[in-house]
């Protein structure tokens, strides 16, 4: 999109879950735009509605009000231009299919020749370094490898936007660093626009070109921060840069502020709802 039109536009997004025990306002009012080719990180405290936001972006949830626009047209359902990597890799891969079968499944309804489909699968598996595990089943792989399969499945789908929900929350530190570099590499070499949700501040600064800090619920955008680190990053030198430290401190402060409640400038000071019964519905941790 050379005309400078945003790829993704979110305007006054609000989402209220109506459950049996009353209403839960997961997202208060979120607006932002995203340019084509961008790698945008979204950070926010636990339970602030990050997963809800992603599901609204991906067309899996209908917003209560507000607008999500993809390439100029409103998102009303799952779009072929988006691929999602879910927080729970163990529950998003199908254990009865092989690695190859999992990556290939979403391509079956695309009008591709068998050879072309096979090429896309091979290419995606190669990109995540799992070509030799193609015939294994997901449960025969480690957690990090399973998440690579989920990433390969999303990449093979050839989306315009890759949406990732805390994909590395459940893997060990070393694997996590490898996977972060994989995401950056995919973004650099393939130019896939990426929305990456995390609750890890370092991760958001290391990965992103831009970091969106969300407040506690009712969720707003607390801060929209450009990450002016060089595009060539690596785990050791980038994380040692003074600028990196400054940026992460900045994000950290904002998160702390976010945790204390809604942005002070907002007029209607809604009480911070503890929502104990709602908490147990969150996935993951």
């Amino acid at each position: 999109m050379p005309d400078g039109r945003p790829l993704l536009r979110v305007e006054h997004l609000r989402k209220v879950y109506a459950s049996g025990r009353g209403e839960v306002e997961a997202i208060g009012d979120i607006s932002f735009t995203m340019d084509p080719g961008e790698l945008l990180c979204v950070v926010g405290p636990s339970g602030c509605g990050k997963t809800t936001l992603l599901k609204c972006l991906a067309g899996l949830l209908r917003p209560t009000s507000g607008l999500v626009e993809m390439e100029g047209s409103p998102v009303t359902g799952p779009s072929p231009a988006m691929a999602v990597v879910f927080q729970e890799y163990g529950r998003s891969l199908y254990p009865w299919l092989t690695v190859r079968g999992n990556v290939e499944l979403p391509l079956r309804h695309k009008k591709l020749s068998r050879a072309e489909r096979g090429r896309l699968v091979d290419d995606a598996l190669d990109a995540v370094g799992l070509l030799q595990s193609a015939r294994s089943h997901p449960w025969q792989l480690s957690g990090g490898m399973q998440q690579r399969v989920a990433i390969a499945r999303a990449v093979a789908y050839q989306p315009d936007v890759l949406i990732m929900d805390e994909p590395f929350a459940a893997v060990d530190a070393q694997t996590r660093a490898d996977l972060e570099d994989l995401v950056r590499e995919l973004h650099l070499t393939r130019g896939i626009s990426t929305v990456f949700v995390t609750h890890d501040i370092d991760e958001s600064v290391y990965l992103g070109q831009r970091v969106l800090v969300l407040s506690n619920s009712p969720t707003r955008v607390q801060e929209d921060l450009a990450i002016d680190l060089p595009p060539e990053r690596d785990q050791l030198t980038t994380r040692a840069l003074p600028r990196f430290t400054e940026l992460r401190t900045r994000v950290y402060e904002q998160i702390q502020r976010a945790k204390r409640g809604p942005v002070p400038s907002s007029v209607d000071a809604r009480p911070v709802r503890p929502g104990p019964q709602a908490r147990d519905r969150t996935d993951g941790h």
Partner: peptide
């Protein structure tokens, strides 16, 4: 599993594949 179903919806997996490659297995 709800996440498996959501995965199928998000990748727009066809009804037929959803039956034979998700629900029945």
């Amino acid at each position: 599993d709800s996440v498996m179903l959501e995965t199928a919806y998000s990748f727009r997996i066809s009804r037929w594949d959803r039956l034979w490659r998700l629900i029945l297995p």
